[in-house]
Nucleic acid binder design. Sequence first.
DNA 1: ATCTGGCTAGGAC
DNA 2: CTAACGGTCCTAGCCAGAT
Length: 417
Amino acid sequence: MPIALVDCNNFYASCERVFNPKLEGKPILVLSNNDGCVIARSNETKAMGIKMGTPYFEIKNFCKHHNIHVYSSNYTFYADMSSRVMQTLSTFATRQEVYSIDESFMDLSGYPNLSEHAQLIRKTIKQHTGIPVGIGIGNTKVMAKFANFLAKKYPQLNGVCNLIELGTERTKKAMQLTPVDELWGVGRKLSIQLKQMGIQTIYDLKIANAKILSKRFTVNLERIILELNDIQCLNIETNLEPNKQIISSRSFGKAVTTRDALLSALIYHCEQIGRKLRRQNLYARQITVFAHTNRFKDDYFSSAINVVFTQATDSFRYMTPTINKALDEIYKPYIHYKKAGIIVSDIITHEFQTIDLFDNINFTNDELLPTLESIKKKYGKNSIKLASELLSDDWKMQRNYTSANFTTDIDQILEVT
DNA sequence: ATCTGGCTAGGAC
DNA sequence: CTAACGGTCCTAGCCAGAT
């Protein structure tokens, strides 16, 4: 089965460029939340040697000096651009797996000329959304990923690498030239160990003994080896399973010491979690509340409390008292907290909800929630909040270089123009 | 002998 | 002036305890 992997080039940086043509040909850089580190770079920025994940403070001066255009991340905007790309993409294959915000696997069974088809996809996505994409084609997901890597690496391929058409000899050559760590599923730790065993390139891994490596490492590695040999182990997953865990957490703009600051941050995260649960019609039975100090310092300190609810819920009304109590246990004055958050797990879908025999409150049907949603819809996201969220805003993140929500907020576009 | 839950490491983007 | 380093999600594998 021919599989394509379509990947947006430098996605966040490209998004910024679409609505700001002055950035054409200029170096762009997008920062993580809190303006912490580099998470996207345009080609020009990559060429200047700036690495993915670099803490921004280390290169701030360099950026100023070299006129790099720096942006805080704007997920509202990127998510909307992503859905436009995925929407257009969906018309080009029988089946599509949206793998991440900027990638899709596509089942290209039945299309006669794959390379031509891929070029048409690139052209259409660019036309509809302004986003450039690269496409890799292979007989398995791992091979499609590898092909996509080659499509990016060799500009003469014009954005499309079709390994099915390339032939065994040239594919072998490409594998011999590519280090294992470039492979999907082989990260830092694993590649070090593989190299110690003499497996340096993707080709070395392809011809390695899958069974032995499976014993020594994991089945996942065995699957990768099989897929490199065109034996399909990983399917295209079209119907997405509900989340098993939902996290909302954030580093603070600066260290925080008061209970109020922690509480208001946690209440904010509680609301986020509630929204995410409701959007997917899910209910959670467990909640973990955590807070910790700066993890890059020697006196790193972290605490967490896990609570099991008697009934699964999606309502902040049942979660907030628990959070408050958990915070009583966690909180210590004079500690410099740098991050806090909430994790919910043990998640069930609507049809599996059970009502506690001895509890007469129905946790899964809080009628206040839809009312609040409609107020927010009518009067704006910030029109109504829990008071405890407003106890303090010391914890708000740094976000100094944000672009406008070009595609979702008309007022912001008017400001720009 | 087998199943279960809890926990950690490692990986992806 | 100095210090400054993301957020979410998943699975495999291991261990301990229960069946």
